[in-house]
């Protein structure tokens, strides 16, 4: 028996109209997208820029209002929910953004940023809030004095860990990660990826992991959906997608990934230039 999905997305669609009103040009950013995310699972959403993967992530949280479809979270449809109820559901679904530089308010200390996230969702006495902020800082690997740091005093990787802490502090079950490591250097990228993995194991979190980087998505995801021009062209377990891609676009994407060793790169080039007899 398969477990009950945490999130069920069905026929989600969102179109954008041309800049001028009455413009006939309609861009289908998200076109009839359906997928499930199971508890404790990482679901990877890959595709190239403009394929609608980020719009999908935002539409789930209604940061962009989708045109049609349904998004049911623990059996309740987020898209039909009144604003009040949506507010408290946001405790369960949080988001981590791509750019760690613009995703933290430069005028606020780290402790205040985390405290604010808590204040938005819970009515707690200050003492309890501060305690929780310190606990979460410790969990993402910061010493106590980071409470008083400003974002500009931290590196990109450290900021992204604060971004994760801000999502974690309200106790979510699902975190939507929109390109969380694409702005980071490789050695820092691995810090954040390992941390996300550890947190998942420890807390039973689910992730919707949105990225253009197939190697990263492969490393962290249990299942993957490939998006092209607003549609999901293929989805399935990670190993199957990578070892036996069905859709030509998926194959095209996989072929474009740079080789991990120069010898492999040369072999592939000679294979491409010598015609198959």
């Amino acid at each position: 028996m398969t477990p009950q999905p945490l999130l069920e997305v069905r026929n989600l669609s969102k179109s954008f109209h041309g800049r001028r009103s009455g413009d006939a040009k309609v861009m289908k950013a998200v076109d009839d997208v359906s997928f499930d995310i199971l508890p404790g699972e990482t679901f990877g959403l890959v595709g190239e820029s403009g394929c609608g993967k980020s719009t999908t992530g935002r539409a789930l949280l209604r940061l962009i209002e989708p045109d049609s479809g349904s998004v049911s979270f623990q059996g309740q449809d987020l898209l039909k929910m009144p604003r009040k109820q949506l507010h408290s559901t946001r405790r369960q679904i949080q988001m981590v953004f791509q750019d760690p530089y613009s995703s933290l308010n430069p005028h606020r200390r780290v402790g205040v940023i985390l405290d604010e996230a808590l204040k938005i969702q819970y009515r707690l006495p200050r003492k309890q809030r501060t305690e929780r902020v310190h606990r979460i800082l410790d969990r993402v690997g910061f010493a106590e004095d980071y409470y008083y740091r400003f974002p500009h005093e931290m590196s990109g990787g450290q900021r992204q860990r604060i971004g994760v802490a801000r999502a974690l502090i309200v106790g979510p079950q699902l975190i939507i990660c929109d390109e969380p490591v694409s702005a980071l250097d490789v050695s820092i990228q691995s810090q954040v990826l390992n941390m996300l993995h550890d947190l998942q194991v420890e807390l039973g979190l689910s992730y919707l992991f949105i990225s253009h980087d197939l190697s990263v998505v492969r490393h962290i995801s249990h299942r993957i959906a490939v998006m092209q021009k607003g549609r999901i062209v293929e989805q399935g377990p990670t190993d199957e997608i990578f070892s036996n891609p069905q859709h030509p676009y998926t194959r095209q994407l996989l072929d474009a990934i740079p080789a991990s060793h120069p010898r492999l790169a040369r072999e592939r080039r000679t294979a491409l230039t010598t015609p198959v007899s």
Binding site: S88, Q94, S103, Q121, V170
Partner: peptide, 14 residues
């Protein structure tokens, strides 16, 4: 337009 404002909306800020 900064991401931290979008992030606040995602958290449900007033």
């Amino acid at each position: 337009e900064q991401t931290y404002i979008e992030s606040l909306r995602a958290q449900g800020a007033s």
